[in-house]
């Protein structure tokens, strides 16, 4: 049993599991979610590095979507942790190199601290938005949406075949490694042996490709037409357009409007 490979894919396929649960958010067209995610990513990435208040405001979108879509925060946090190491290094370099104080007379906090916090917040929000997109649409919905957006069917077909066979070949690779481990008496894998293992795996990939090609041929694939990979994309409904418009308008307001400062001012005016 290739524990490593199946653990890996269990973790990744959690994304598809979320997409199979039926909530109203998942019944929307995948293109809606793609458009909102792209607008959100552009808004978050276009903010100046020291603008933390608008980032906090923009965090409302992933919070709302994960609550409405039934996606646990722990899943989003784990995916953000994967991309974290390099970002943490850059954030630390900001703290180290930019020591201008924000408040005159106080050594801390510095502009570097603000930049680091802003960078980590951007990481969390961008990864959350991308993870939510996949969790809400699933790979099948996403590829249908991509076809609707005129992505070449060859690329979508590639995605499908890769998704299907990556687990199969990962299992084969794990079996090869386990067999070698059991026979190697603890010696580490040298580059020459790795070349042979990789070559073996490559030959198995070619053989399997040959079998898949014959199977596709018997099911009508003529080497040109990719009709089998094209799914009919349904028309966008009023609900899809309405939801996308509301979310994008909200994102634009959070990015360009007077945002948190305006809300704060109004609250202070109400206070006695």
């Amino acid at each position: 049993m290739s524990q490593c490979a199946s653990n890996l894919w269990t973790a990744a396929l959690h994304a598809d599991d979320f997409a199979r649960r039926d909530t109203w958010l998942r019944r929307l067209d995948p293109r809606t979610h793609v458009a909102i995610t792209v607008a959100y990513l552009l808004a978050a990435m276009s903010l100046p590095l020291h603008d933390l208040s608008r980032l906090i405001l923009l965090a409302a979108y992933p919070v709302w979507t994960s609550l409405a879509g039934g996606i646990p925060f722990a899943y989003l946090a784990r995916r953000a942790a994967i991309a974290a190491p390099w970002i943490v290094l850059v954030a630390v370099s900001w703290i180290w190199l930019d020591r201008r104080p924000l408040v005159p007379g106080h050594a801390w906090p510095t502009a570097g601290d603000l930049a680091a916090a802003s960078l980590l917040a951007r990481l969390a929000l961008t990864v959350a938005a991308a993870s939510l997109l996949l969790a809400l649409t699933g790979l099948s919905g996403l590829t249908a949406g991509l076809l609707g957006m005129r992505v070449p069917p060859l690329c979508v077909a590639q995605l499908w075949i890769l998704h299907r066979y990556a687990l199969v070949l990962s299992d084969e690779a794990a079996r090869l490694l386990r067999a070698r481990e059991l026979r190697s008496a603890g010696h580490r894998l040298t580059w020459r042996q790795a070349g042979i293992l990789l070559g073996q795996l490559c030959v198995r990939a070619f053989d399997r490709a040959e079998r898949v090609h014959r199977a596709m041929g018997m099911r009508g694939f003529d080497g040109h037409s990719l009709r089998a990979f094209e799914t009919r994309t349904r028309r966008l409904r009023a609900t899809d357009l309405a939801y996308a418009s509301v979310m994008i308008l909200w994102i634009l307001w959070a990015r360009f409007g007077d945002g948190a400062a305006g809300l704060g001012r109004r609250l202070m005016q109400l206070a006695p």
Partner: peptide, 23 residues
């Protein structure tokens, strides 16, 4: 003729090949 299965399977191979670490 599009080498579609071969391309897909070699993509999966690249994926699986990253498991094989050598010293």
């Amino acid at each position: 003729e599009l080498p579609l299965p071969r391309m897909g399977l070699l993509g999966a191979f690249v994926f699986a090949a990253q498991m094989i670490n050598f010293s």
